Simulated assay, not measured.
Amino acid sequence: MAASSVVNDERIIRRIAFSQRLSRWDVKFSPYLYISPFIIVFAITGLFPLLYTAVVAVHEWNLIGGQGDFVGLDNFAFVLGQEKFWIALRNTLSIFVLTTVPQVIFALVIAAILNNNLRAKTFWRMGVLLPYVVAPVAVALIFSNMFADKSGLVNNALALIGLDPVAWHSQVIPSHFAIALMVNFRWTGYTALILLAAMQAISRDYYEAAMLDGAGRFRQLVSITIPQLRPTLIFVIITATIGGLQIFDEPKLFDQGGTGGADSQWMTITLYLYNLGWGQLDFGRASAVAWLLFLLIIVIGLLNFAISRRIASNQT
């Protein structure tokens, strides 16, 4: 009897020890199991194309002949030696500034307004998202007609107030402004809803204490709302940076040619990449442009991250 009880106790101890071990394994490995679908999909659709593009960028590669000889960094040297690449870089940075900065500012203001107790607030909150639902092709066609050089709606409005018409498709800055307006029209409402969701999570006690101290709405926005939105603002700025540097649809559809203007007035890097890849069928050089754009996004994204964190920390 004593021997059997000892054996049973050992079995119970082993079962407890094994269940405890399984519990520890569950705590350690189950989170990675839950996020594994995203990692797998990202590896297939994101990481693999990125690495494959790096391979293509160091070879002669065209659509018809496929992979050619290994050329090392010659494709990068060729791209960096082209004047059109630097024009595209200038246009991309110009449009990026005209889209990202106003988009974040206006989205913050719209979110602050929608955060108040408005009548039919659900209607207004859904209304700011409507431009995002509109197809980019439709937005580009409407705005390209509005900003037509001769008989566009904007130039007709300028003529009514005695101003000279603007060559929106012929000049550099006006074309960048028109394209940036298209981008901001589509994405400002979407960004505003992200900021609004973050504002809803801020405790109302802060605002009540500020109102007792006599702080107005603008002071509450600067001293309470913006510091509390620091993580969300960093996310919004980073995503706006990536989207602004990868802009393609609006410049492509701004005119019927789709090449970025007769003198490349609004040709962006992505449009230059498209013209190299599908216009000249040179996938090696197009992949080199893609990697240069990838590095540019990383550099500007890190700068934006550092600047936004510093500004937000100074607000607190």
Rank of each mutant, 00 (worst) to 15 (best):
R204M: 11
G214I: 01
R219G: 09
F294K: 07
L196M: 01
S144R: 10
A312Y: 03
P131R: 01
V6M: 12
D255W: 04
P165A: 01
G65D: 10
R11L: 15
I234M: 06
R310T: 12
G68D: 03
G277D: 01
L302K: 06
Q265M: 02
A2M: 15
L160S: 12
S151N: 12
Q171R: 14
L245P: 03
S287L: 01
L295G: 07
Q220H: 02
F78I: 12
W124E: 03
V289G: 06
P136T: 05
A2D: 12
A2H: 07
A215S: 09
A178R: 01
R230A: 15
I311S: 07
S287N: 00
P227I: 04
G214C: 00
D282W: 05
F78M: 13
I224K: 03
A201K: 11
A157S: 15
L212W: 10
K28R: 15
I110N: 07
I307N: 06
I307V: 14
R11D: 11
F123E: 04
A197C: 08
N62R: 00
P49W: 05
M1Y: 13
I40T: 10
N115Q: 09
S94Y: 14
T191H: 12
A180R: 03
G152Y: 05
R90S: 14
N116G: 11
I179W: 04
V71T: 06
G257Y: 14
I298R: 06
W187E: 08
F248R: 00
H176K: 12
V289Y: 08
T53R: 08
I247L: 13
G261P: 08
F85A: 00
W168T: 04
L50N: 02
I110F: 12
V56C: 06
W86G: 08
E83H: 13
V97E: 01
N314I: 10
L158F: 02
L292C: 06
N184W: 11
P102H: 00
R15W: 12
A198P: 00
H59V: 07
I242S: 07
L292H: 08
E83G: 13
A286T: 02
P227A: 04
Y206S: 07
D74R: 13
I224F: 04
N117A: 10
Y207A: 01
T191A: 14
R230W: 03
G162V: 02
W291F: 14
Y274L: 04
A54R: 04
R15H: 10
D213P: 04
M199V: 04
D249T: 08
T239K: 10
G258N: 05
Q171K: 15
L196H: 00
V97W: 09
D74L: 07
D9R: 13
L114F: 06
V139N: 01
Y190V: 02
Y34M: 15
H176E: 00
E250D: 11
